[in-house]
């Protein structure tokens, strides 16, 4: 299809979508109104399970099964990227070249920020059921915090702090742990991912039953998954050399 024909198809499709979208909006309750039936049900259910962060309650208690699906998508994408970005054909790893010089202030800043960032990541994961945050957000903070070492110009020290095999294992183990918590709910509470742990008292760190447990499991999964993903791309950019040239089917 030529560029012009493709544009015509796009304009027709976009116009159809725009018209359908406007009609759909016409039948909606007014923007910003107080009519939110799902909100009322979700907030009541969260308060019943002593979870101040209603979004966490939806993700890890009321609809934890959906989060298991999301977790599986994450696992699948990590496996897919690792399979796609493995060494092929004539590629081989090259030793690290001596990097360019980096202003000392940047290196020092990275080393100072590394423990602070990791601490914030752990805090965001641990308080996911109380304050905004949770396993997904905290996991990303942890994984990207680790890469401050790369910013500091020390790819080798990043590799030392990041034994990739362990992170790959961690990714699989946390996905399994999520299913394990679900099966524990099935055994003790009669339904998969039922919230069977003691609920504790409102706004306490140890409360909300399985929500903080699943937050920690997901935090591990996201942190290890993101580290493995970023490692594949960093390897491509830094360590791999002599790829199959254009046209050759390597």
């Amino acid at each position: 299809m030529s560029g012009r024909a493709r544009l015509v198809v796009f304009v027709l499709g976009a116009a159809g979508l725009a018209v359908a979208f406007v009609f759909a909006l016409g039948g909606m309750p007014p923007f910003g109104g107080s009519e939110h039936p799902y909100r009322d049900l979700a907030v009541a259910a969260a308060l019943r399970h002593v979870t101040p962060n209603v979004v966490s309650s939806v993700n890890f208690d009321q609809r934890a099964l959906d989060t298991l699906g999301e977790e599986t998508i994450l696992l699948g994408s990590v496996i897919g990227a690792a399979a796609l970005l493995r060494l092929v054909g004539h590629e081989k790893e090259r030793p690290e070249r001596a990097g360019g010089r980096l202003p000392d202030a940047i290196g020092l800043g990275c080393y100072l920020l590394l423990p602070v960032t990791l601490l914030i990541g752990l805090d965001v994961v641990a308080h996911g059921h109380l304050t905004p945050g949770g396993g997904f957000q905290g996991g990303v903070v942890l994984a990207t915090g680790l890469h401050l070492l790369y910013l500091a110009g020390r790819y080798r020290s990043l590799e030392r702090l990041r034994p990739l095999a362990w992170y790959e294992f961690g990714e699989g183990a946390s996905a399994t742990a999520f299913v394990g918590v679900g099966l524990a709910g099935l055994a003790a509470g009669g339904s998969f991912l039922a919230n069977v742990l003691p609920l504790g008292s409102f706004r306490e760190l140890l409360s909300a039953g399985t929500v903080p447990v699943l937050n920690i499991v997901v935090g591990c999964a996201v942190a290890t998954g993101a580290v493995v993903l970023l490692a594949q791309f960093l390897e491509q950019a830094i360590r791999i050399t002599g790829g199959a040239g254009p046209g050759s089917s390597g």
């Binding site: 939110h36 909100r39 979700a42 979004v55 993700n59 999301e70 998508i73 994408s77 970005l85 791309f233």
Partner: peptide, 28 residues
Amino acid sequence: PVVDPVVQAMTLTDIVVSATVTALLLAL
């Protein structure tokens, strides 16, 4: 009174899936 947490949870799911799909597409 709070805003709807259900759509916020869906948005969070959406963001995570979008990030992983982006990684896979860039690998491709």
